[in-house]
C-alpha cells in the first residue's frame, strides 16, 4: 500500500479524538467511560420518585433489622388488665401507648414495628425465588427454543392459568406450621410465570442480535453466550417486573395472613385480621398496620416505576 494510506489513518486517529473532545471546546473534559448501568443510575439519582421510595425503603429495612431501635416494648406479651383496648395517646410519640393497645393488651405500635419483618422477609424472599426460577425457565425456553420452549411455555401457561391466591391458599392449608420459608415457597410456586414470560421474550429478542452471532462465530460456549451476552441485556425488564412485584407479594402475604393462612407470628396481616373484629370499638388496631402496609407497597411500586423510567431506553 502506498504511504498515503498510513497518513490517512493517522489523521483519522487524530480527528477521532477531536470529535469526542471537540476542537472547538478544548476546555471540555474528555468524555468518561459511561456504562448503560451507570447512565441508568445517574437517571435514578435525579428522580424524585426514586428519592422518596429509597428513603422509605431504607427506613423499612432499618425497622426490619433493628426493631429494637424503635421500641423497647415486647410485641407478644400483653397486659390484659392494664391495657385492654386502650386508646392511642397520639401525644406520646414513639412510646408504647402511642398507637394504643389491642384486645390482648399488646402495644399496637410495637406490633406494627415487629410486623414489618414478616412482610419484608416474605416480599424479598418471594421476589428472589421468583426471579431466579422464572428467570431460569425463561432463559432456557427462550435460548434453546424448539421442543424445550414448547414444553416450558405450556408449563408456564398452565401455572399462569391457576388463580394465584387460591392456589397458594390451598397449598398453605396443608401446612400447619407456616414459617417464612413455607409462605415464600407457596407464593413463589405460583408466582414465577410472569418473570418467565418477560425473560423468555427478552431472550428471544436478544438472541437475534448480531453481537450474539459474533460471539458464536468466535466459538464462544453456550454458558458464555447466555451469561455474558444475553443475560446482561435481558436483565432490565426483569428487574422492573421484580421490583414492582415485591409490593405485590407483600400485600399477598398480608392477604393470606388476614385469611388466617399466613405466617404464624407477628405480621401486619394477622393484626389487620384481629383488628377487623374490633373495628367498631377500636379502629386503631386495624388502622396502623394497614397504613404501614400501604406505605410499604407504595414504596416498592414507586421504586419499580423509577427503575423502569431509568432502564427503558424508549422513554428517554
Amino acid at each position: 500500500m502506498p504511504d498515503v494510506t498510513k497518513t490517512d489513518v493517522q489523521t483519522a486517529v487524530a480527528t477521532d479524538g477531536g470529535a469526542t473532545t471537540p476542537v472547538a471546546a478544548p476546555a471540555a473534559k474528555p468524555e468518561k467511560s459511561r456504562s448503560l448501568w451507570g447512565d441508568a443510575w445517574n437517571d435514578l439519582r435525579h428522580s424524585w420518585i426514586f428519592g422518596v421510595s429509597a428513603v422509605l425503603i431504607l427506613l423499612l429495612l432499618t425497622i426490619t433489622f433493628f426493631p429494637g431501635l424503635f421500641t423497647d416494648t415486647d410485641p407478644i406479651k400483653g397486659d390484659l388488665a392494664k391495657h385492654f383496648l386502650q386508646k392511642p395517646k397520639l401525644g406520646h410519640v414513639f412510646s408504647a401507648d402511642w398507637l394504643g393497645y389491642d384486645q390482648q393488651g399488646r402495644s399496637v405500635y410495637a406490633r406494627t414495628i415487629y410486623g414489618t419483618r414478616a412482610s419484608v422477609a416474605v416480599g424479598f424472599g418471594t421476589t428472589l425465588a421468583v426471579t431466579v426460577v422464572g428467570g431460569l425457565m425463561g432463559m432456557i425456553a427462550g435460548y434453546f427454543g424448539g421442543i424445550v420452549d414448547s414444553i416450558l411455555s405450556r408449563l408456564t401457561d398452565v401455572f399462569f392459568g391457576i388463580p394465584f391466591l387460591l392456589a397458594t391458599m390451598v397449598v398453605l392449608t396443608s401446612f400447619p406450621d407456616r414459617t417464612t420459608w413455607v409462605v415464600i415457597g407457596a407464593l413463589a410456586a405460583f408466582g414465577w410465570t410472569q418473570i418467565a414470560r418477560v425473560m423468555r421474550g427478552a431472550v428471544i429478542t436478544t438472541k437475534q442480535a448480531d453481537y450474539v452471532h459474533a460471539a458464536k462465530a468466535l466459538g464462544a460456549s453456550t454458558p458464555r453466550i447466555m451469561f455474558r451476552h444475553i443475560l446482561p441485556n435481558t436483565l432490565a425488564p426483569v428487574i422492573v417486573v421484580s421490583t414492582i412485584s415485591l409490593g405485590v407479594y407483600i400485600s399477598a402475604e398480608a392477604t393470606l395472613s388476614f385469611l388466617g393462612l399466613g405466617l404464624n407470628g407477628v405480621s401486619w396481616g394477622n393484626d389487620i385480621s384481629d383488628g377487623g373484629n374490633q373495628i367498631r370499638v377500636a379502629q386503631w388496631i386495624m388502622l396502623y398496620p394497614s397504613i404501614m402496609l400501604s406505605i410499604t407497597v407504595l414504596a416498592f411500586i414507586m421504586l419499580g416505576e423509577a427503575v423502569r423510567n431509568a432502564l427503558d431506553p424508549k422513554l428517554r
Partner: peptide
Amino acid sequence: QELYAIKGLPPNLLRIP
C-alpha cells in the same frame, strides 16, 4: 486505487464547532 476519504466524523449537534 484508493478512495478519497473525508477525514473525521460528522459533528455532534450538541457541540457544533
